[in-house]
Structures are given as C-alpha cells and as structure tokens.
Write a protein that binds this DNA or RNA. Structure first.
Length: 268
DNA sequence: AGCCAGGGTCTGC
DNA sequence: GCAGACCATGGC
C-alpha cells in the first residue's frame, strides 16, 4: 500500500468525473472516493491540483488512468473559444476523461446499451464480485477475459444483465483468443480499430466508440447516444470547431454532462 | 401502465 | 441503405 501525490494540470472535480457516465466503479467515502481499476484499488482525494492516491497498485498506472499527460487548463481555454461550448465547459469544469483499461471498458459499455447509469453500476458490481479476484483491500477486480470466456449464459444469470450476457461472452471469447487484441488495436487507425471492435457480437458504433475513447485513449472519438444526438442537433448543428476536433471526445464529455444534468435540473 | 435508459441485431422492403 | 420489431431489467 503506497500513497502518491500526482499533479493534474487543470485539476479534477472527482465527483463530476466519476459520476458523468464514463466510469462505474467509484463510490464516495466521506470526502474521498474509492475505486477499482486494472486490478488495483485506489482511495482518492483532491487538494488544489494535487491528486492524492492511497493504493495497492503502482503510481504509473494511476497517472495514466487520470490522464496526467493532459493540461486541462489549456484544453478548456481552447474549447471556450467556441462560445457554444463554453457554457458546457463552465457547467462542470473539473471533469477529466479517464484512461481506463481496455477489456473492462469494452464490457462495461456492452452492459451500458439500452440501460441507465445506476443499473449499469449494479451489473458491473455483480460481475466483479462473482468472477473477479478478491483484492487485499476487500474489493473485487474486474474479471479477466479468460475467466469470463469460461462462463455460460446460465452462470452469468445472477448478473441480471438480460440480453447483454451473450454479448459479454462473445467479447470475452474474442479477447481471450487474441482475435481482438488491445496491442493490435493500438496499432490500427481509429477507423480500423472501430471496425475490429464491431466484429464482436453486440458491439455497434456507439459501444465501439466508447471503448475507443475511454479504453484506448482515442481522444478524438465522439460516442453518439440519444443525449448526444439531441445535443449536437440543438447546440452544434454545424459541428465542432477545427481546433476542438483532436480532443472532441473530451469536449463531448462536457456536452453530455451539460445536457444530461440540465434536463434534470429544470424538472427539479 | 407505459415510457425510458450512454444500443444492437435481425428482418423485410 | 433504412425503418421497425424485438430484446431483459428496473425506476419512475
């Protein structure tokens, strides 16, 4: 168990980052957040732009996870040059797009289809408790592709993942066999990698794009779901600006959170 | 009760 | 290529 201080340029709003629909394994614990990724547990607190992590894992894993290579001050300045995007950025300024492990991300967004965030969280949690290694922290790691490839529709029934169970099995089979390989995907163009991901049963463009953005650090990819389709039509009928495009996936996260939560705010 | 939730597949035109 | 039915589950 080690404690590490990591400087995040532009800081991070942990609550917003963990609850904006990109990651599903974090919970609040007092003024800290506890989460699991890559077989490691982390307890996270923010102070100014310093992220403090107590973890059974290594520092470099979490540095990459929290995208410490990106200066979010610079990024937000660029985004806010577009006056349509500025209100979205200002609405939840501290969101960072996390770099999550590939297989976990793939499975999580298979589970996300035609589903809502609380129930996605529940299914992922049951999946980990049923088939993941128990860590010294008492938390459960995300299951390996090999373990998941040994499962059946019946053994996955306790997850209550519905019609998605067969999709999880095909994803596990293709990753465990190497037919879909993170190392290979990393060498492909985004277009080629997307097509490879879509070869998995139950993975369409949206799930593939979430995997590319959140699980393979393709910052330019914009997953389009019902919220984003509406938001783009209403707020960005002419598309995003040229300067935003290389990081359009990150801009997308601000837009998604803005439109999703603005709606519920107005109801309240 | 019916609609919706960070969709995808399959069928029929 | 595109529309529409269908797919499990749970909250509102």
């Amino acid at each position: 168990m080690g404690t590490y201080n990591i400087q995040l340029r532009g800081g991070m709003d942990a609550k917003a980052t963990f609850s904006c629909g990109q990651a599903f394994r974090w919970r609040q614990d007092g003024d800290a957040f506890v989460g699991i990724a890559g077989g490691y547990t982390a307890q996270v607190t923010m102070n100014e732009d310093t992220l403090t992590i107590k973890t059974d894992g290594n520092e470099n894993f979490w540095r990459h996870y929290f995208a410490d290579e990106l200066d979010y001050n610079a990024l937000r300045n660029t985004f806010c040059e577009d006056e349509r995007l500025a209100p979205c950025v200002q609405y939840s300024t501290g969101i960072r797009v996390l770099h999550q492990p590939f297989f976990e991300t793939l499975c999580t967004f298979i589970i996300s289809q035609n589903n809502n965030i609380p129930r996605i969280t529940g299914i992922v949690s049951r999946l980990c408790e049923a088939f993941g290694d128990k860590l010294t922290s008492g938390e459960y790691a995300f299951p390996t592709p090999q373990i998941m490839a040994q499962q059946t529709i019946e053994s996955l029934a306790p997850l209550r993942s519905g019609f998605r169970a067969k999709y999880l099995l095909d994803a596990a089979h293709k990753v465990a066999s190497g037919e879909v390989s993170e190392q290979v995907l990393a060498q492909l163009t985004t277009e080629e990698a997307r097509n490879k991901l879509i070869s998995i049963y139950g993975v369409g463009v949206k799930v593939a794009d979430c995997t590319l953005l959140y699980g393979l650090a393709r910052n330019e990819v914009v997953p389009i779901d019902v919220h984003m389709r509406r938001a783009m039509a209403e707020l960005f009928p002419t598309g995003l600006t040229e300067k935003t495009l290389p990081y359009a996936g990150i801009a997308q996260q601000y837009i998604f959170n803005y439109t999703r939560l603005k709606g519920t705010e107005l109801k309240a």
